Computed example of a mutant assay.
Amino acid sequence: MGEEEFSFVFVVIVLGILLISLIVIIVVKSITLIEYIYSYFYKKPLYTHLYFRLKKISPQHQEFIKQRFPFYNRLNRRQQSFFQHRLVTFIAHKSFEGRDEFEVTDEVKIYIGATAVMLTFGMRNFLLKRLSKIIIYPDIYYSTINEVHHKGEFNPQLKALVFSWKDFLQGYETANDNLNLGIHEFMHVIHLNTYNHKNISAVIFRDANKELEDLLKQDHLRNKLVDSRYFRDYAFTNRFEFLAVLVESFIESPLLFKQNFPEFYKKIKEMLNYNFAGY
């Protein structure tokens, strides 16, 4: 091959690569645009679950989840396989640390991880990048940050979620009391995780949350919320606590929530992309 022929072939290859790259960029941008239009009308992503190889948990841990998570039992077999895959992946990406001689067992990881997967099951991005480690105490612990005792908290600076295991378990003991420490604290993580993210689930979450806050500004709806005593007073501490408390009710007593506050229920449904009362 002569020098001129080689140069010609090289130019053709380079132009071919550039053309293919341009086509890929156009396709990706087009799909993104289509999805944003779709989400504007339908309030959900074009797709939520797409995996190349599904990971599974053991039959023993499957049974563990079935006994403790009604949410899992409402999923069909294919969705349960997605749940398992996300659970294995989530646990693998997080550091679990025990304090005050607390032993972090596989079941502890499964219980905590399944709570996170349940809340993010309707979202495409579920790994919660603002969270890197989960710290578990056997009971209420003393926080050196604000010098008070805590049952649970999320520290975004340290990317750390902290639980009292005793209080985490108590959250699941009564299924419909709208008090669940795990759900509450993970909602803080999810809420902050949507900040400054451009993925479609984060965009939908932020938009619905803004509309939720606008609803709260309407005097007649706010008065109805307060007078009903359905949500505990702690919900009105700030917008973060308001959302966390609402989601506790959304999951633990969805039918009652939907019947009494359909406007608020609809927004939580959009944010999580799951209808807990739809069964």
Rank of each mutant, 00 (worst) to 15 (best):
191 H>G: 05
138 P>D: 01
55 K>C: 10
182 G>H: 05
209 N>H: 12
270 E>N: 12
87 L>Q: 07
49 H>T: 10
111 Y>H: 06
6 F>R: 15
130 R>M: 10
74 R>K: 15
257 F>L: 14
233 D>P: 07
249 S>V: 02
231 F>T: 04
273 N>W: 04
43 K>V: 00
197 H>A: 14
164 S>H: 00
25 I>Y: 13
252 E>F: 06
268 I>W: 07
175 A>M: 04
63 E>V: 10
13 I>S: 09
174 T>V: 10
33 L>T: 12
169 L>Q: 02
204 I>W: 12
237 T>L: 06
122 G>R: 06
141 Y>R: 04
54 L>A: 08
10 F>V: 15
165 W>P: 03
248 E>D: 15
42 Y>S: 13
44 K>R: 15
122 G>T: 01
31 I>H: 09
117 V>P: 05
154 F>I: 01
144 T>D: 14
24 V>E: 06
49 H>C: 09
127 L>T: 11
50 L>M: 12
85 H>C: 03
153 E>S: 07
1 M>F: 07
241 E>Y: 03
136 I>Y: 01
212 L>V: 03
53 R>H: 13
210 K>H: 05
45 P>K: 11
90 F>L: 02
189 V>Q: 08
7 S>K: 15
99 R>Q: 02
33 L>F: 14
66 K>F: 06
191 H>A: 02
227 D>N: 13
125 N>V: 14
75 L>M: 09
197 H>F: 04
247 V>F: 01
191 H>F: 13
39 S>A: 15
159 K>M: 14
85 H>R: 11
92 A>W: 02
22 L>H: 09
275 N>Y: 09
3 E>A: 14
165 W>K: 07
48 T>E: 11
68 R>F: 09
176 N>G: 05
88 V>D: 07
31 I>N: 10
142 Y>N: 05
137 Y>A: 01
24 V>N: 13
127 L>F: 04
266 K>T: 12
112 I>K: 04
111 Y>F: 00
59 P>V: 01
250 F>I: 03
279 Y>I: 06
180 N>G: 02
257 F>A: 05
171 G>W: 04
224 K>Q: 11
92 A>K: 13
102 F>H: 00
237 T>R: 06
28 V>P: 02
143 S>G: 02
211 E>P: 00
182 G>D: 10
207 D>I: 08
181 L>R: 03
265 Y>A: 00
1 M>T: 10
33 L>D: 14
263 E>S: 13
246 L>P: 08
278 G>R: 14
1 M>A: 04
233 D>A: 14
208 A>L: 00
99 R>S: 09
268 I>P: 08
38 Y>P: 08
40 Y>K: 15
24 V>K: 12
5 E>C: 11
201 S>P: 12
69 F>P: 07
37 I>H: 10
21 S>V: 12
165 W>C: 03
192 L>I: 02
216 L>M: 12
202 A>H: 01
183 I>Q: 06
111 Y>K: 12
50 L>W: 14
203 V>M: 13
182 G>M: 03
107 E>C: 08
122 G>Y: 07
277 A>H: 07
160 A>T: 08
229 R>P: 00
226 V>M: 11
59 P>R: 01
71 F>T: 05
138 P>L: 03
259 Q>I: 05
110 I>A: 06
241 E>L: 02
129 K>Y: 09
198 K>A: 13
212 L>N: 01
163 F>C: 00
98 G>N: 05
89 T>G: 04
126 F>A: 03
67 Q>T: 06
